[in-house]
Simulated assay, not measured.
Amino acid sequence: MKFKFAHNNFNVKDLQKSLRFYEEALDLKPVRTKEAPDGSFTLAFLSDGTTPHQLELTWLRDWEKATYDLGDNEFHLAFTVDDMEAAHSRHKEMGCICFENEAMGIYFIQDPDGYWIEIVPA
């Protein structure tokens, strides 16, 4: 028996806004979507075009709270990048950097729903 990572899921309030963010910030593109027949949810699976791992964004029509409760937000995704300086510049311009650890040479960006994504040098 062999298990392999398939995807991680983030629930989002505004699917189109999130899709724009992930494409602009991380060059992720949707590779497939699934919509409930009754319109109650939409799933969008994003890919970096390189690895088999995907990010699933889930939009729920009937979610009534203003935001998702992310707790202490200690969970996160991490991305490596081959040009840390260019990535940092892009994310600084976007205004989405939420934490930097210069001693470790890493930083985090925050998506529209408050999820943190770690950026580390390749």
Rank of each mutant, 00 (worst) to 15 (best):
L70F: 05
H76I: 14
G39N: 08
R90C: 04
E102R: 12
A122F: 09
N8S: 14
E100S: 13
P112N: 13
D83C: 09
G105E: 12
H53A: 15
E102A: 15
T80D: 07
L28M: 11
M1T: 11
L60M: 08
L55H: 03
M1W: 00
E100Q: 13
G49N: 06
F41W: 10
T58N: 01
V120T: 10
K13Y: 04
V120F: 03
D14P: 00
D14H: 09
A86M: 10
L15N: 00
F75V: 15
F108S: 09
W63P: 01
S47A: 13
T50G: 12
D72L: 15
F108T: 05
H88G: 13
I97P: 01
W63D: 02
K2Y: 07
D69Q: 08
Y68C: 12
L57Q: 01
H76T: 09
A78G: 12
L19Q: 01
L55D: 04
A25R: 02
H76G: 10
D62A: 07
S40M: 10
L43P: 02
A122W: 00
T33K: 11
K92E: 14
S47G: 08
R32D: 06
Q54D: 05
I106P: 02
D69G: 05
G71P: 01
A66K: 12
A36W: 02
E35S: 14
F21S: 02
P112I: 13
D82C: 12
I117W: 00
E85C: 06
Y115L: 14
S18F: 06
V120N: 03
T80P: 05
F10H: 06
R32T: 11
N101A: 12
G39Q: 07
E23N: 13
S89T: 13
F79L: 08
V120S: 09
D83Q: 04
L57T: 02
V81T: 11
P37S: 14
F79P: 02
E56L: 12
G114N: 10
R32E: 09
T80Q: 07
D27A: 13
L77E: 03
H76N: 09
K2H: 09
N9P: 08
R20P: 00
D83P: 09
D62R: 01
T80I: 12
V12M: 08
E56G: 04
E24W: 00
F75D: 05
K29W: 01
L43F: 15
K13I: 13
G114Q: 08
A66M: 10
V12A: 07
T58I: 12
L70H: 03
Y22M: 08
T80G: 11
L77T: 07
T51V: 11
T58F: 04
T67E: 14
Y22R: 03
T67R: 13
M94A: 06
D27C: 11
N101D: 15
F108P: 04
E56H: 05
G49I: 08
F5E: 08
